[in-house]
């Protein structure tokens, strides 16, 4: 009797979420579509796989950092150290000095490992020592920035050649940046379908209920923080490849931008709602705004103002839609 109650409640949660999510996704998709149409009407030459590939390439570091942020936000946290993990991976990738040969591919593996390690450290501070996510990552943010500066004191370095080759390569005529965007999305859909994916949402929606249902909240969070570290690291590695050099101070700009992207996409900062799919759309939307402003030869302030306004409009719009839905449900 008593054991049937929680199992009966679970499906209701599962049904309610996709409905709200679809509102969010539709809104984000509509904004993205509008921006795509505007951009295409300003510069028709963009309707070309190579050009789109270049656009996605500029977006990719932000995309990966935002994916990391999304994962953390989904379990009810926030990560200020994504920028730090980004630059450490970025620095590790470019410390190969060229010439000597050797197994420089290993640098990428090292950058992956370092990313996972840093994310796991955040997770340990949060789950083990009981730090608030905001504060734990506030501390590790400067620590990771310092580590990046230790590895690479100034801008420069060279990424392994195969990474630069990867940037310009194509798969059946499709630039690798687009392929990667699709792979990230598919990987997320696969993860979402697994039991672990379900647990991420369960923990984010209601930690106590997840615990009562037998989920190890700590283990899920730890895994999510580690995974987020990996994603932020991939962003840093990608940026090193795209710029063909490293920048140990580039991370800070991405921190608050990634939060903005997550919110524009439609993932709730309360956790348990949203996902990586909408974040990808949000990141592309911000990138398109910059592209449009560049194409029109407008000043930088226009793109900053437009990004901030988009953030406000999306959040305010969503609050209105949610209030409407709540009213309809009450009726």
């Amino acid at each position: 009797m008593s054991s049937s109650a929680p199992t009966r409640r679970l499906p209701r949660l599962g049904v309610a979420m996709p409905q709200r999510l679809s509102w969010n996704s539709a809104l984000t998709a509509a904004i993205l579509l509008a921006l795509i149409i505007i951009d295409l009407s300003i510069q028709p030459a963009l309707a070309n796989l190579t050009q789109i590939g270049l656009l996605v390439e500029t977006a990719m570091p932000l995309v990966m950092v935002s994916v990391a942020q999304t994962l953390i936000v989904l379990v009810g946290g926030i990560d200020l150290s994504v920028g730090g993990m980004f630059v450490v991976a970025n620095a590790v990738t470019v410390v190969w000095v060229g010439g000597g040969g050797g197994a420089h591919q290993l640098l990428i593996v090292a950058a992956f490992a370092v990313g996972i390690a840093m994310g796991t450290l955040n997770g340990l501070l949060v789950t083990g020592l009981g730090f608030q996510p905001f504060i734990a990552t506030l501390g590790t943010w400067t620590i990771y920035n310092g580590i990046a500066l230790t590895i690479l004191p100034t801008d420069g370095g060279t990424p392994p050649p195969f990474l630069s080759n990867f940037m310009v390569a194509t798969v059946f005529g499709v630039p690798t940046s687009i392929v990667m965007l699709v792979v990230v999305f598919l990987a997320w859909r696969c993860l979402r379908a697994t039991r672990f994916g379900g647990r991420i949402y369960a923990v984010g929606a209601d930690e106590e209920r997840a615990r009562l249902n037998g989920t190890s909240v700590r283990r899920v969070k730890l895994a999510v923080y580690g995974l987020a570290g990996l994603c932020a690291a991939i962003g840093g590695i990608y940026a090193a490849g795209a710029d063909v050099s490293g920048t140990p101070t580039a991370g800070d700009a991405y921190i608050l931008m990634s939060v903005a992207v997550v919110v524009i996409g439609g993932t709730s900062l309360r956790g348990g709602e949203g996902g990586v799919g909408v974040t990808l759309m949000g990141a592309m939307a911000l990138t398109l705004i910059n592209d449009i402003v560049d194409a029109l030869n407008l000043n930088t302030w226009v793109s900053v103002a437009a990004s901030a306004s988009l953030l406000l409009v999306m959040v305010a719009g969503r609050t209105l839609v949610e209030a409407q839905l709540r009213q309809r449900r009450r009726r």
């Binding site: 903005a260 900062l269 930088t300 302030w301 103002a305 953030l311 959040v315």
Partner: peptide, 27 residues
Amino acid sequence: WLRIAPIVMTLAMGGLVQAFLLAVGEL
């Protein structure tokens, strides 16, 4: 009143102030 999360609201206002300062500098 609009029930926007503090992080988001102040981030966006910060962006608008930054845009104003950039405009002052650029114009």
